[in-house]
Design a protein around this nucleic acid. Structure first.
Lengths: 108, 108
DNA sequence: TATGTTTGCAACCGATTAGTTGCCAATCAA
DNA sequence: TTGATTGGCAACTAATCGGTTGCAAACATA
């Protein structure tokens, strides 16, 4: 069984879950209301995310909030590093800074 | 059938293939010598990469060189963008500047 | 032309995946 | 204490995945 971050983000539902809990920790119940699948299906995705150490459960009464382990996302970023020099010129920090300032006043 | 870049990088062999053809275009035969699987298995990975538009075949005589479409890797980078502000020092620079420009709400 | 090389395609196989339903334990609220 | 809510676990299923073998087409070369 491969259990790594790349497996974790392979599924579109899982990517959506990751994006949601990046904003705030959420319960399986709350999460399942965002999708057309059962709570149990969402739970299985969460279970996999926990195995991959992408999310961690935090119990609060009878609810369990799943929180994103943001550091895990860095592993993807790190893997991308080897390709970045092949495409990025704007990875120059100053370029990035100026570009963002010129085209984006609002965060997202 | 999900055919996207995230599916493409889910498999470790495929990630290795991507890393290899990032250095130079390679043939299925040459690639298969780098792994403990058959040429046909490598070919199937290449086929999927082509479907995902991560690699493109370039015939040269009876050989077919597979070349990495580096731009596709940017899609991963773009998806990561939403998380990056949560972790990156070099983006904190930007955050700090934006906060200052926005009459600042809160530091850090 | 005959032969070997390179590759794609098809059929097949076992394991995994993403989903379902059913059930039970724990917690909260009346 | 009773009943509803929340969520994990188990069993099952259809589809997909990653691999195999076998074969035929296209090309290169003797």
């Amino acid at each position: 069984m491969r259990r790594d971050i790349f497996q974790a983000i392979a599924d579109p539902t899982r990517r959506a879950i990751i994006a949601l809990i990046a904003l705030q920790p959420m319960t399986p119940n709350a999460l399942s209301q965002e999708f057309d699948i059962t709570r149990q299906a969402v739970s299985k995705h969460l279970q996999l995310l926990v195995e991959c150490e992408v999310a961690t459960p935090h119990q609060q009464g009878r609810e369990i909030f799943y929180r994103l382990e943001i550091d895990k996302m860095k592993e993807i970023d790190h893997w991308l590093e080897q390709f970045r020099k092949n495409w990025e010129r704007r990875y120059n920090q100053l370029d990035e800074l100026l570009n963002t300032l010129n085209t984006n006043k609002n965060e997202q």
